[in-house]
Write a protein that binds this DNA or RNA. Structure first.
Lengths: 225, 225
DNA sequence: CTTTTTGATGACCGTCTGGTCATGATTTGG
DNA sequence: CCAAATCATGACCAGACGGTCATCAAAAAG
């Protein structure tokens, strides 16, 4: 029996995948979830580059050969692991950018930024693990297992620059270079949220969105009438 | 011949180390520098967890056995590699904290923060490699080879909190939780400086210190007369 | 109930890696 | 010049690791 050239969750041309909700479908989903959950816990403690497939499958309680039925390699697993975080982050930034396009008042501007904060907040609540993994690893070199995280980090910065570009076009920011304001905001937000996820002593975490808005609105805001 | 239980650059009780400036002393320093330089280049591209001792010694042009004459393991090398960055960062933060203790005017406060910016600026100029390595890896899990970097990251946050505590004591910051303002500033500064070191398109990089001061002084500043 | 298809398994293989060490080269100090 | 000390070397070793695969188990479909 030869290896299929391109592995898939359900192989294309599969003749008997079983019906949705059936035993096979249920087992496949459960196994993938077990592997992803196990990997996440190990990545959070050890970093994405210090975890072996053996570690993951042992923690997930499945045989090593099963890993390769669901994932080409660890990079493929990480890609799937951070998919929810990618969707939430990129969606929030795009929505904020579009809202700012129409933001002709300072109130609408604050609302757009608040939308980002809220989306990030919900990300922290719904997917704290993937969010924390992203925040921990997003600046280290995007090689091997970490590639999907590095790609998302680049996307986040690109979108943040778009948000800043639109904000500045409306005269809503000081005439600082867009790449500078985008990075300052992203950097501050990332470290603050990482602190929350790491249970660092942060005081009243409900003040964090305020702090961020303060940074953006008061710190970078253009002094216009 | 048995292994010494604790390796050192010059073994304790060494009988003929050679005089300072002598052939051995010179060769030792050159070899350590070659290994550290090689390791730095590899760590920057691949991450601290994806580099083998063989990689380092090959790039440095020395035999593998020589590596272990100078370093216990890679963690020891990283400890030494970031020593200049650690000195500069901690010294700058401590100086700023002390200056803020005496800062009774807004001008003195700005001067203290500017001192941090200048120290960071000189760090980027004098040790761009170690600075970039620190910025890339400082949030990923502090295990194995990355331990020294994680320890420095914790120290930086601790000192930043002290700086914020003093600033707030003087009523120079809004009454936001100290951990929040400290992290916001550190996060913004780190991402901005990383952008410079990665040659990301940042516009006029001379505006970055201004952006940081803007964030701190205008964004977090208490609205006092 | 049976055949076909899909999934699970963990031993196996080749490569990678940390770390050691016997041997020889070089430096030191008298 | 010489004995002692220090340094350099890269083959070697044992274990770690990614990925495969022959075999068996389980599910699907008729």
């Amino acid at each position: 029996m030869t290896r299929r050239s391109s592995k898939r969750q359900v192989p294309r041309g599969s003749k008997r995948p079983g019906k949705p909700g059936g035993v096979r479908d249920t087992n496949r989903k459960a196994r993938k979830a077990a592997l992803i959950d196990a990997a996440l816990l190990l990545y959070l403690d050890h970093g994405v580059s210090n975890v072996a497939v053996d570690d993951i499958t042992t923690k997930a309680g499945v045989a090593k050969g099963s890993f390769y039925r669901y994932f080409e390699d660890q990079e493929a697993l990480v890609e799937e692991l951070i998919a929810p975080a990618r969707r939430t982050l990129t969606s929030a930034l795009i929505t904020a950018r579009d809202m700012l396009e129409d933001a002709v008042t300072a109130e609408r501007q604050i609302e757009a930024y608040r939308g980002i904060g809220e989306a990030l907040g919900s990300l922290l609540l719904e997917s704290p693990g993937p969010a924390r993994l992203y925040l921990q690893e997003c600046r280290a070199p995007a090689v091997g297992t970490r590639k999907p995280i590095g790609a998302l980090a680049k996307r986040v910065i690109d979108l943040a620059e778009e948000v800043s570009t639109v904000a500045q076009k409306h005269g809503l920011l000081k005439p600082l270079p867009v790449p500078v304001t985008a990075r300052a905001v992203v950097g501050a937000a990332e470290r603050l949220f990482l602190g929350v996820l790491l249970d660092e002593e942060m005081g009243n975490v409900l003040e964090i969105p305020l702090a961020l808005v303060t940074l953006v609105v008061d710190g970078l805001r253009a002094r216009t009438a």
